[in-house]
Design a protein around this nucleic acid. Sequence first.
DNA 1: AGATGAAATGTTATATCATAACAACCCCGA
DNA 2: TCGGGGTTGTTATGATATAACATTTCATCT
Lengths: 157, 157
Amino acid sequence: MPPFEFQSHDHASCMTSAMRAAEQHCLDAKLQFTPVRRAALEILLSEHKALGAYDILAKLDARGLGSAPPVAYRALEFLVKNGFAHKVEKLNAYVACAHPGETHDPAFMICTSCDSIVEAATDPQAGQLGRAAKAAGFEINTAVLEAEGLCPSCKPT
Amino acid sequence: MPPFEFQSHDHASCMTSAMRAAEQHCLDAKLQFTPVRRAALEILLSEHKALGAYDILAKLDARGLGSAPPVAYRALEFLVKNGFAHKVEKLNAYVACAHPGETHDPAFMICTSCDSIVEAATDPQAGQLGRAAKAAGFEINTAVLEAEGLCPSCKPT
DNA sequence: AGATGAAATGTTATATCATAACAACCCCGA
DNA sequence: TCGGGGTTGTTATGATATAACATTTCATCT
């Protein structure tokens, strides 16, 4: 079972456990989990939706942690590079990773009605893209899988 | 067999046939295939790679067809909406459709070495995203499938 | 042919997303 | 203490995209 689904869940505990996991990973890998980076991850975890870099920057600024774009972009770069967050290409926005620890290409389902977003577990090498790539002799390094539509709550019954 | 693959092909004929197909489709659907739109599609078809909106704008400008961003964006909007081109989200760029006629969600393989790009045929409802969506009760409207990696020509042997 | 309304275009301005470049700082190990 | 890598602060700018409104074109109806 993924850390969260479209259904409601214990937000506070999902957030603190993700923070702990990130902290541990940084210790293990000797990465600097600095205040800006920590705050950026907290901000992303606070929402189950994608936030633009400038949204995050505004929230960082509200905490007194920097007001110029590179501050936010650098923190996001760190989070994405280390698997704590992903960029949602379709939205030019960022979201906390739902399966931290493992590095992976994410697959997203984005609700166009309520902006909620969930990350599904998939293996890009295995799906249709993987098959097409194999057929074409193409070697996949990274994959983007993003679906837009209606989540169960917003879907007309 | 798709209209083109990573392998070489008859560029001129692939281009003229795509233009003819677009022309026919516009006639059938009573769409206005205006000079700007026609030129934008020609420009996209001239390359097997994704072009940024401003690249296209520059080429339109060179033909005396407009120099302000909305000119390019409106032409691209038309082409995308009617299935003659796609936006590659990962690149914020646009590419001619390889399977015009059918409306579909595209799947791309993008070579990070030579910038070539091919569009594979897939059914988003069927793949891993489709399965995840079904499991989650999510209704997919559109899907983005994009892989970056190395094409056969650029792949080390 | 002339009227008319929708669609397309031209143009200016501005919003939004992202990075280059360089100086300053901080921590840690030699 | 010195030096060096990594992080941060800051300014400036580049790249992508759209809002808003005036004007023109064009299909269609009369």
